[in-house]
């Protein structure tokens, strides 16, 4: 248990505390290397690549964009609703969102 947390603290991008999930998504969705993925996400968010790991910058920005924040915020998009906003932000389709859309009338 301590090992993955050690990696997250040493090298990770802090997930939805910052923009780690968005950079990871671009590596997976488009096969982008780390530099390209960071550049892509930074451009979409209109921030610097350093800001992508900065909780101070990303906390407020994520709430504004409705793409999910790590703390509980009543009424803010969570789960699949936040991912639907991520789809628009990053200009890609997310499988679970596609399935969700397919289930509603």
């Amino acid at each position: 248990m301590g090992m993955p947390i050690s990696h997250i603290m040493t090298s990770g991008m802090s997930g939805i505390r910052a923009a780690g999930d968005l950079v990871a998504r671009m590596e997976f969705a488009k096969g982008m290397r780390i530099g390209e993925a960071k550049d892509y996400v930074a451009k979409k968010l209109d921030v610097t690549t350093d800001d992508l790991s900065d909780e101070y910058v990303m906390r407020e920005l994520r709430e504004e964009l409705g793409i999910g924040v790590i703390t509980s915020v009543a009424g803010a998009p969570k789960g699949i609703a936040a991912k639907m906003n991520i789809e628009k932000l990053l200009d890609l389709k997310i499988n679970s969102c596609e399935k969700f859309r397919g289930q509603i009338a």
């Binding site: 248990m1 993955p4 050690s6 990696h7 997250i8 603290m9 040493t10 090298s11 990770g12 991008m13 802090s14 780690g20 950079v23 990871a24 590596e27 780390i34 690549t49 350093d50 992508l52 790991s53």
Partner: peptide, 20 residues
């Protein structure tokens, strides 16, 4: 504990995941 230089952070993926 040491850490990467600021700006060099990378995404972390997991094996075993929730089972840990």
């Amino acid at each position: 504990m040491v850490g990467v230089e600021q700006g060099m952070e990378v995404p972390v993926t997991h094996d075993i995941g929730t089972i840990r």
